[in-house]
Amino acid sequence: MTARIKSWTDTPSSPRFVPPPGAIDAHCHVFGPMAQFPFSPKAKYLPEDAGPDQLFALRDRLGLARNVIVQASCHGTDNRATVHAIAASGGRARGVAVVDPDIGDAELDALHAGGIRGIRFNFLKRLVDDAPKDKFLAVAQRIVRLGWHVVVYFEADILAELRPFLDALPVPIVVDHMGRPDVRQGPGGPDMQAFRALLNTRPDIWFKATCPDRLDAIKDGGAGAPWQAFADAVAPLVADYPNRCLWGTDWPHPNMDTEIPDDGALIDMIPRIAPSAALQQALLVDNPMRLYWPEELG
């Protein structure tokens, strides 16, 4: 049997930064429990169980208030683990599903009742075997009535190829991890400039200023601060698009078993990319509330 992967630490550091009240982890996952929610036979990795109790304990330890749980690729289009975690949150979580493009309207309605507010399209070939743009567009048309959005995960080298597809999406778009730019190029590098050009095409494209551990190979920034290239490249993006940025831990850090990040250090990245109280409030509270709990905003 393939060894199961553990990609998170049980002992994250205590962050120095204190998030504002109501702060939301807008990108995290759950794995299993496998005995209750088996992984997809097409899964590219087999993680250890990382269920809602662990996620919510981390939420509280880090000083956060809510979670947006994104369906992990290891569960395929079976969203039961994600919906189960949302139900266990007591109203403090919402979710993003991965669906078969042929899903029925009744099942979409059931997902909405279960707290799902978007669907995810994954274009990383190392994680998915097929990403049919025509079928993705068809299902995107069918979620307009629900007020959902689409979350898109891709790498920077295919952004130009994806532009016609992204332009055609009829709902708001949230880009995971900013489309994985090479942050070593700096804020004016070609990857970040191409991403800014995408943001400038329409006002309803959002992004997650997330995953310094994935995007910045330099763990030591020189003065005890890790991931300095990430901070340098991403802070100007947050400053220029303050009403369209989100943040999340990415816990339990799929496929990061060889370089397991410290969740406390991830929290301490927040003031480095959002240095003012106003930016922190937008990034952590106001923006995710608009997408995932709009009914509470009046």
Results as ranks from 00 to 15, higher is better:
residue 3 A to H: 11
residue 5 I to V: 15
residue 5 I to D: 13
residue 8 W to H: 00
residue 10 D to E: 12
residue 10 D to R: 08
residue 11 T to Q: 04
residue 14 S to P: 05
residue 22 G to M: 00
residue 23 A to Y: 08
residue 23 A to F: 12
residue 23 A to P: 06
residue 25 D to S: 09
residue 31 F to E: 06
residue 35 A to C: 09
residue 35 A to I: 09
residue 35 A to Y: 07
residue 37 F to C: 04
residue 39 F to S: 07
residue 39 F to N: 09
residue 39 F to K: 03
residue 41 P to Y: 05
residue 44 K to A: 11
residue 49 D to L: 11
residue 49 D to W: 13
residue 50 A to R: 03
residue 51 G to R: 02
residue 59 R to E: 13
residue 60 D to I: 14
residue 61 R to L: 13
residue 62 L to D: 04
residue 64 L to I: 14
residue 66 R to L: 08
residue 66 R to K: 10
residue 67 N to I: 06
residue 68 V to L: 03
residue 70 V to G: 03
residue 74 C to Q: 06
residue 74 C to Y: 06
residue 75 H to F: 06
residue 78 D to L: 13
residue 79 N to Y: 10
residue 80 R to W: 14
residue 81 A to C: 03
residue 84 H to L: 09
residue 89 S to I: 06
residue 90 G to C: 12
residue 91 G to T: 10
residue 91 G to R: 09
residue 91 G to K: 09
residue 92 R to F: 12
residue 92 R to G: 12
residue 97 A to W: 06
residue 99 V to G: 02
residue 100 D to E: 11
residue 101 P to E: 09
residue 101 P to T: 05
residue 104 G to D: 15
residue 106 A to M: 04
residue 108 L to M: 10
residue 108 L to D: 07
residue 109 D to K: 12
residue 110 A to C: 09
residue 117 R to V: 06
residue 119 I to T: 04
residue 119 I to H: 07
residue 121 F to N: 00
residue 126 R to H: 01
residue 130 D to L: 15
residue 137 L to E: 00
residue 138 A to N: 08
residue 139 V to E: 04
residue 146 L to T: 01
residue 147 G to Y: 06
residue 148 W to E: 02
residue 148 W to V: 05
residue 150 V to I: 12
residue 151 V to R: 11
residue 152 V to G: 02
residue 154 F to S: 00
residue 154 F to E: 00
residue 158 I to K: 01
residue 160 A to F: 07
residue 163 R to M: 15
residue 168 A to I: 11
residue 169 L to F: 12
residue 170 P to T: 09
residue 171 V to Y: 02
residue 173 I to K: 02
residue 190 P to D: 12
residue 195 F to I: 01
residue 198 L to G: 08
residue 202 R to M: 12
residue 206 W to H: 10
residue 213 D to F: 08
residue 215 L to W: 00
residue 218 I to E: 06
residue 218 I to H: 01
residue 219 K to L: 07
residue 224 G to Y: 15
residue 228 Q to C: 15
residue 235 A to L: 13
residue 236 P to S: 14
residue 237 L to N: 12
residue 241 Y to V: 14
residue 241 Y to K: 09
residue 248 G to F: 01
residue 251 W to K: 04
residue 252 P to Y: 03
residue 257 D to M: 04
residue 258 T to P: 07
residue 259 E to P: 00
residue 260 I to M: 05
residue 265 A to L: 10
residue 265 A to Q: 07
residue 265 A to I: 07
residue 267 I to L: 04
residue 271 P to Y: 13
residue 273 I to C: 08
residue 275 P to H: 10
residue 276 S to R: 05
residue 277 A to W: 02
residue 277 A to Q: 10
residue 279 L to F: 10
residue 280 Q to H: 13
residue 284 L to M: 14
residue 285 V to S: 03
residue 287 N to W: 01
residue 289 M to Y: 05
residue 292 Y to T: 01
residue 293 W to F: 11
